[in-house]
Design a protein around this nucleic acid. Structure first.
Length: 477
RNA sequence: GGCGGCGUACCCAAGUGGCUAAGGGAGAGGUCUGCAAAACCUCCAUGCACCGGUUCGAAUCCGGUCGCCGCCUCCA
């Protein structure tokens, strides 16, 4: 059964069909680099990452392009506020983005083009559109797309021009309020590039049309982004690219749902932003990924630190089981090569997992299977069945590779959680160890009152003790 | 006003016509333990916003009502 994805274009689930032998092409809209990325960006990044990972795990080669919008009104405005050139601000934010995306453990795209590095391709596209009557220059050096000339305008967002509300028309130079800028004539002091229509800079949408086509050709298989990009951004990309080439731009349009905070969309204008860096200070990256994966990618997700912490607890349970399995096997975690790891799952758990993921990337259903599998793993470990446990451990590693989960060696993951808890408790490892020694001493003397008091004191500081067959261990609460 | 989506247990959430409505978090009881913790076992929605309808059969399809959200302006 092939993978189906909900195509915004049709509103239905449609099979992914490779147009070329051996692989598919994926373009995902990246970020405008003018401030630190937030949890909403993280969800889009992780959605694309899981899609890309899963496709590769299934044996498809994926050419994955994610762009940087590194010139735009917001960048210019912000740069002016900070008092540095726009290009410098963009550079700085691209670097910060790199840290965030690395923390998220997203696979690097095949290509990560910047708008400002592709101005000639945009100019060429705009010239062709003017030549074909789909665009027109105006007096101030701007060029607009003539929306009414493109008959199927609105097909992605399912709206008709006549039904749309239009805000106040500021730019009287436009023929129609719906026309959008392909090129913006430069105002004094703004960064600009030369063009046949005078100095200016590209409009927002044109970069994706130009870069997607340059790296992927047209048509290509999948174009994605946040659902807030459906209109106007993706609608306009389609208009530009299809008016120019006369063939479809992309086959499948995939959009992830928004992150909300208390039922309201998280956005800068509402001031309810939580940055990726904020989350990183509180939880491991995979806790956030697990939280995302627990809700279908198209559904809005209400983010809260409570839910983040819950996911962190669930993640800890998962890693505990993996660590037990590795310890029982007496070795390092299994090494999994992502490409083709799920190309031919025969039966059982992995086949069920694929069935869930093949159905519009239903990772939430897949996760349910994972938790069931982990319970089985613990059961086998309790029973001392190492061989069967090792098999399951390997399956979980495969699923981990395909979803970006379980990327850390479990022992190291748990150690880092311990270290975090220890720092929070303000105790040194030696202090904890000596408390444990004192408690075990008391236990040997059957002075359980004293032993329990020591344990309780540590618990109040966030350090939990567990007495196991191989002695007493501690972890963070 | 136009378009799209949502309303499932204490919280989150899967589920798109038919076995006992996944899974996670929290909670309760049990096994284990000096006692705990962890792990495991058991329990936790005769019901899926509400009202009608179609059907042998609906959380799932149709109609209506109520509530919530997103897009229509920059937005992942």
């Amino acid at each position: 059964m092939p993978l189906v994805l909900t195509n915004t274009l049709s509103g239905r689930k449609e099979p992914l069909v490779a147009r070329q032998a051996g692989g598919v092409r994926l373009y995902w809209c990246g970020v405008t680099v003018y401030s630190r990325s937030h949890v909403g960006h993280a969800r889009a990044l992780v959605t694309a990452d899981v899609l890309c990972r899963y496709l590769r795990a299934r044996g498809l080669a994926v050419t994955f392009v994610r762009n940087f919008t590194d010139i735009d009104d917001k960048i210019i405005r912000r740069a002016a506020e900070v008092g540095i050139p726009a290009a410098e601000l963009a550079e700085r934010e691209i670097h910060a983005f790199g840290e965030d995306v690395a923390w998220l453990r997203c696979l690097p795209p095949t290509h990560e083009p910047r708008a400002t590095a592709h101005i000639p391709a945009m100019l060429a596209l705009i010239e062709r559109l003017i030549g074909a009557g789909f665009a027109y220059p105006v007096a101030d050096g701007s060029v607009y797309f003539r929306v009414r000339r493109f008959a199927s305008y609105g097909k992605l967002s399912h709206r008709r021009l006549d039904d749309m509300e239009t805000g106040e028309e500021i730019d009287a130079a436009k023929e129609s309020p719906h026309d959008f800028a392909l090129w913006k004539g430069a105002k004094p002091g703004e960064p600009s590039w030369p063009s046949p229509w005078g100095a200016g800079r590209p409009g927002w949408h044109i970069e994706c049309s130009a870069m997607a086509t340059e790296y992927l050709g047209q048509p290509f298989e999948i174009h994605g982004g946040g659902s807030d990009l459906v209109f106007p951004h993706h609608e306009n990309e389609i208009a530009q690219s299809e008016a120019d080439a006369g063939v479809p731009f992309a086959d499948l349009w995939v959009h992830n749902g928004m992150i909300t905070r208390g039922e309201e969309k998280m956005s800068k204008s509402l001031g309810n932003i939580l940055s990726i860096a904020d989350v990183a200070a509180r939880a491991p990256a995979e806790a956030l990924r697990l939280l995302f994966l627990g809700t279908h990618y198209r559904t809005p997700l209400d983010f809260s630190v409570t839910r983040l912490d819950e996911s962190g607890r669930a993640l800890g349970r998962l890693y505990e089981a993996l660590a037990r399995a590795d310890e029982a096997a007496g070795g390092a975690p299994p090494a999994i090569a992502l490409d083709g790891a799920l190309a031919d799952p025969v039966t059982g758990f992995l086949a069920e997992f694929c069935a869930a993921m093949d159905d519009d990337l239903n990772a939430a259903r897949g996760l349910g299977l994972v938790f069931d599998r982990v319970r089985e793993l613990n059961r086998l470990l309790d029973a001392g069945d190492r061989a069967a446990a090792t098999d399951i451990r390997r399956e979980l590693a495969v699923v981990g590779a395909a979803t970006g989960l379980f990327a850390e060696p479990p022992a190291e993951f748990l150690e880092s959680v311990r270290r975090r808890g220890q720092e929070r408790a303000g105790l040194s490892a030696a202090e904890i160890e000596s408390a444990i020694a004192a408690r075990n001493d008391a236990r040997r003397r059957k002075d359980f009152r004293e032993a329990d008091a020591i344990r309780e004191r540590l618990r109040e500081q966030g350090i939990l003790l567990e007495d196991g067959p191989s002695g007493t261990i501690w972890k963070a609460g």
